[in-house]
Amino acid sequence: MITAYKCKSCGQIMYPYHYRCINCGGREFESFVPSTKAKLLTYTVIEQLPWGFDERGRVLGVVEFSNKVRAMGLIDIDADTEEINIGMKLTATWEPVRDTYGEKIYGLVFRPA
């Protein structure tokens, strides 16, 4: 799972890691793991993927977790047959999201809760 960061001086939540707080420039953070509950903020269905993906209809979205962390991830939905809505509730898991020459790369995967 990803690690998120909370600035010890201003409380700003960040992901991914920054050496200085994006709000106040602070350098001390409390690290934590986002919850598994998230809601969808925006998404897209990609029909023409970059090299490295022999597929179409991949759904990516930006979510906000219940503890306010925001992140992008793979939305495991068949866009041809299933409904996707902004605001829908999702459950997060940590799974392979791409295969680079046989090496599995892990990332956030979301499914309807």
Binding site: P16, T42, Y43, I46, P50, L60, I86, V97, I105
Partner: peptide, 23 residues
């Protein structure tokens, strides 16, 4: 794109623009 938080998912510039456009 951001390597570990965006690129790994297969995001393209049209995909970022698509997410932006929807909002």
């Amino acid at each position: 794109a951001q390597p570990e938080a965006e690129y790994i998912y297969g995001v393209s510039l049209p995909a970022l623009a698509g997410m932006f456009a929807r909002l």
